[in-house]
Amino acid sequence: MIALPPYAATLGARLERDEAGAPLLVLPFGEPVLGRPGFLHGGAIAGLLEVAAIAALAHVLEADGGGRIKPINVTVDYQRGGRDRVTYAAGVVTRLGNRIANVEATAWQDDRAKPIAAARLNYLIER
Rank of each mutant, 00 (worst) to 15 (best):
M1D: 06
I2E: 06
A3G: 14
P5V: 01
P6I: 07
Y7C: 08
A8Q: 08
A8G: 11
A9G: 08
T10D: 03
G12T: 08
A13Y: 15
R14H: 13
R14K: 11
E16W: 09
D18M: 03
D18C: 05
G21W: 14
A22T: 00
P23W: 07
P23M: 01
L24D: 03
L25P: 15
L25E: 02
V26M: 03
F29V: 02
F29A: 01
G30Y: 11
E31T: 15
V33G: 01
G35N: 02
H41T: 10
I45M: 07
A46D: 14
A46L: 10
L48G: 05
L49I: 15
V51E: 05
A52R: 04
A53C: 06
I54D: 07
L57W: 05
L57Q: 06
L61D: 03
E62Q: 12
E62Y: 11
D64Q: 14
G65Y: 06
G66R: 07
I69N: 02
I69M: 10
P71D: 05
P71V: 14
N73W: 06
T75W: 06
V76E: 08
D77C: 02
Y78G: 01
Q79K: 08
Q79Y: 04
R83N: 09
R85Y: 06
V86K: 03
T87Y: 07
Y88S: 01
A89V: 13
V92I: 09
T94W: 12
R95A: 03
L96P: 14
G97E: 01
G97R: 04
N98V: 10
N98S: 11
N98P: 14
R99E: 03
A101E: 00
N102W: 03
V103G: 00
A105N: 04
T106Q: 12
A107W: 13
Q109R: 12
R112G: 02
A113S: 15
K114W: 12
K114R: 10
P115Q: 02
P115N: 06
P115S: 00
I116P: 13
A117W: 11
A118E: 09
A118I: 15
A118D: 02
R120D: 10
R120E: 14
R120H: 13
L121R: 05
E126R: 05
E126W: 07
